[in-house]
Amino acid sequence: MIVLLPPSETKRDGGDGPPLAPSALSFPELGDVRAALLDELVALAADRPAARRALGISAAQDGEIDRNAALTSSPTMAAIDRYTGVLYDALDVGSLSGAAAARARSRLAVGSALFGLLRADDAIPAYRLSAGSKLPGRPTMAARWRPVLEPVLARLAADELVVDLRSGSYAALGRLPGAVDVDVVAERPDGTRAVVSHFNKAHKGRLARVLASSRSEPSDAAAVAALARRAGMRVERSGNALVVVVPA
Rank of each mutant, 00 (worst) to 15 (best):
I2L: 05
V3I: 12
P6L: 00
S8N: 09
S8F: 02
E9G: 08
K11L: 02
R12W: 00
G14Y: 01
D16P: 08
P18V: 01
P22T: 00
S26W: 00
E29S: 12
G31P: 07
D32M: 04
D32A: 14
V33F: 03
L37H: 00
E40W: 06
V42W: 04
A43E: 14
A43H: 08
A45Q: 02
A46P: 06
R48W: 01
R48C: 05
A51V: 09
L55K: 01
I57S: 00
I57V: 04
A60V: 13
G63S: 08
E64V: 07
E64D: 14
I65P: 00
D66K: 02
R67H: 10
N68P: 09
A69L: 10
S73T: 15
S73W: 01
I80A: 14
R82V: 12
T84M: 09
T84N: 06
G85R: 07
G85S: 11
A90P: 12
A90I: 14
L91A: 01
S95P: 07
S95R: 13
S97T: 15
A102Q: 14
A102S: 15
R103W: 01
R103G: 10
A104D: 08
S106F: 02
R107I: 03
L108I: 12
L108A: 10
V110C: 02
G111C: 10
A113C: 13
A113V: 14
A113G: 14
F115Q: 08
F115H: 06
R119Y: 03
A120Q: 10
D121K: 03
D121W: 02
P125H: 00
A126G: 07
R128E: 01
L129Q: 04
G132Y: 05
K134M: 10
L135K: 00
L135S: 01
G137E: 09
R138M: 11
A142M: 05
A143N: 07
R144H: 07
W145M: 02
L149Y: 02
E150Q: 13
E150R: 08
A154W: 04
A154N: 06
A157M: 09
E160I: 08
V163E: 11
D164T: 03
S167M: 12
G168K: 12
A171Y: 04
A172M: 05
L173Y: 10
L176W: 06
V180G: 04
V182Y: 07
V182G: 05
V184S: 00
A186G: 15
R188I: 11
R188N: 15
P189Y: 04
P189L: 04
A194W: 02
V195F: 13
V196F: 08
H198D: 11
N200S: 10
K201P: 14
K201L: 13
A202L: 14
A202K: 15
A202N: 12
H203A: 14
H203P: 13
K204C: 07
G205I: 13
R206L: 13
L207P: 12
L211Q: 03
S213M: 08
S214V: 11
R215G: 15
R215Q: 12
S216E: 15
S216H: 14
P218T: 02
A222Y: 08
L227C: 15
G232K: 11
G232H: 04
M233F: 05
V235C: 10
R237L: 14
G239F: 11
N240F: 03
N240H: 11
A241L: 12
A241D: 15
L242H: 01
V243A: 07
V243Q: 04
V243F: 04
V244H: 10
V245K: 03
V246L: 05
P247F: 01
